[in-house]
């Protein structure tokens, strides 16, 4: 909760102003159409460490921002 994220338009803001957005990342080795579709819809890498994310700054500019974050800090 105490996470603070930097909005390029509004500045640094606490996480309660933001909404997290998952970025589907099916691995390349999944080649079947159905297999990729199921992975996009449900599966997640759930990365431990630095990760590209999308956050919607609902409490400010109301726009999506691409933010890199380390999930272990």
């Amino acid at each position: 909760m105490a996470l603070r994220l930097h909005c390029p338009h509004c500045g640094v803001r606490p996480v309660d102003e933001w909404v997290y957005g998952e970025v589907p990342d099916p691995p390349d080795h999944l080649t079947g159409a159905d297999e990729r579709d199921v992975d996009r819809g449900f599966m997640m890498s759930n990365t431990e460490g630095a990760k590209q994310e999308r956050w919607f700054h609902a409490g400010g500019c109301g726009r999506w921002q691409a933010i890199e974050r380390d999930t272990t800090i």
Partner: peptide
């Protein structure tokens, strides 16, 4: 409603 705008602009981008 709150979710809808976010969702639309997400796909637009």
């Amino acid at each position: 409603a709150g979710h809808f705008e976010m969702w639309l602009s997400d796909w637009a981008e």
